[in-house]
């Protein structure tokens, strides 16, 4: 499903990796962005829909500047998005973000750590702001 389509939004796609706690964390981070931190600026899509869906769904990363959030270095969200939709603006990976923030992974596959998810979501929100700033700058340059 594509949620909340508007050119003013940034796409954030989670890998949702079912096998690892970091995959569950990516999912929580995207929902926190959508529900708490940037409800009017975040769009998302279920990653497997790129393969299961139709052409319209594959336009997602063309319609929205997109950030992918992966739980591990296999980067399924980034590679899947670039394979079926469009290149992404940032391909983020949970262990890298935690390293930057000097945080340790917490939570399990079944239960994410809410505080950690919020901290990672704040970090992703900074990238979204950067991306929006760049987009606005590009628009000004075109004027």
């Amino acid at each position: 499903m594509i949620e909340k389509t508007s050119p003013k939004r940034i796409g954030v796609i989670a890998c949702c990796g079912e096998e690892i706690p970091e995959g569950t964390l990516t999912r929580a981070v995207v929902r926190i962005l959508m529900e708490e931190i940037k409800p009017d600026e975040t769009a998302t899509i279920c990653l497997p829909l790129f393969l299961a869906g139709d052409e319209q769904e594959r336009t997602f990363a063309q319609l929205f500047p997109t950030i992918t959030l992966d739980g591990c270095e296999k980067r399924c969200a980034q590679i899947g998005t670039e394979k079926y939709s469009h290149s992404v603006a940032f391909g983020l990976v949970i262990p890298d973000i935690l390293g930057e923030l000097h945080l340790n992974m917490k939570g399990t596959k079944e239960k994410f750590d809410l505080n950690l998810a919020r901290m990672v979501a704040m970090e992703v929100a900074k990238r979204m702001d950067r991306l929006k700033g760049k987009g606005e700058q590009d628009e000004e340059d075109c004027d």
Partner: peptide, 12 residues
Amino acid sequence: RTLCLGLLTKGD
């Protein structure tokens, strides 16, 4: 057992 569905989307 389970498997990350994203791996299939990626084509792993």
